[in-house]
Amino acid sequence: MTDLPTTSPAFDLIIRGGTVIDGTRAPRFQADVGITDGRIAVIGPLDNRTAAREIDATGRIVAPGFIDSHTHDDSAVLVDPGMTCKVSQGVTSVVTGNCGVSIAPLKPGSPRPMPLGLLSPGGGQVAEFASFADYVAALRAAPAAVNVAPMVGHTSLRASVVSDLGRAATDSEIGAMRSHVQEALDAGAIGVSTGTFYPPAEAAPTAEIIEVCRPLTGSGGVYATHMRNEADQVTQSLEESFAIGKALDVQVVISHHKVVGPANFGRTKETLPLISKAMSCQCVALDCYPYNASSTMLHTDPAKLQVKVVVAASGPHPEVAG
């Protein structure tokens, strides 16, 4: 908290009387916030200061922009750079490329099996970026209203490189994917994500994932995963995720942690202690969403259809929506 000298000029904006939560893990505190040239100039008592514009934040929280840590906004930030859907909720940064699905690199003409359809939520044409550097260049050429922290997706790599998605990758295919990962990290990717829950990647054994992700070691990047199983085999999937993180010596993020299906409800009593134990000897984190349903592709595997399924939308069969 800083006091401003009385000789200081007026601010462009003062947010008065709010409760500040500053993101440093410090306790919340009451303060005014003075902003000049789009940047926070001072946090403290500004009773005697003036501004071109003032906002009364009494009874409200004043906080930095929120980070949406799990998104599929890879295309949205290009198609709708205003990102009203996010900034209207206070989100100022998005992490893209989750669940193994990234807009780059995608070999032109390569197959787009689900869940790669997430790259085109409106069903329109998806831009193709053969390299991650090309995608980053597109982001910089037309900056979105949010910061973008992109990951490279293992499923996208498989779709671009592996000739038969129903099998494990060959050594040469692993080498090609590994080269793409290195190129992506060099271009600015913050890590690699996997989605072994989905058919295009479920045939990938643990060894394939480790070898493809080798460039992560020593890079400071993260390994984020939509695990192989979030239902009956959830603990085994957690152990696989931890093992990959240990083999690569990288940070692990368990995406949207949950346990699926009525038979597994309450099993977070097993999974959360397991995650806490892993945290004591390696860097592990998780994200979760605050609602009791998930949104994903329509599986044909009976084991994945044991809970209520609602069709939100279908291009070929719009009549089944709902």
Rank of each mutant, 00 (worst) to 15 (best):
A243S: 15
A63T: 11
G90P: 01
L118F: 06
D249T: 08
V152H: 00
I244V: 15
D80M: 11
I43G: 00
T58I: 09
T84S: 15
A141T: 10
A224G: 07
S160G: 07
S172K: 10
E230R: 01
P199D: 14
G322C: 04
V148D: 03
G261I: 01
I55Y: 03
I40R: 08
M279N: 05
R267N: 08
R178A: 08
G195V: 03
V250H: 00
L286S: 12
D73L: 11
R140F: 01
G218W: 09
V259D: 05
V148A: 07
V234P: 00
G220S: 09
A247R: 04
V259M: 07
V212E: 03
M1T: 12
V161S: 00
D3S: 15
P27V: 10
V181P: 01
L165A: 07
L286M: 14
D171V: 09
S219W: 05
S8Q: 12
V91E: 06
G90S: 06
G90Y: 01
G220K: 09
C288W: 08
V42F: 05
F66I: 13
M227H: 03
T36A: 14
G175I: 05
Y223H: 07
P115D: 12
A127L: 10
G34H: 00
V91A: 07
E239V: 08
H154L: 04
A278S: 08
I190K: 01
L216S: 02
N292D: 13
V307Q: 15
S131C: 06
Q236V: 09
Q89C: 12
D73Q: 11
D12V: 05
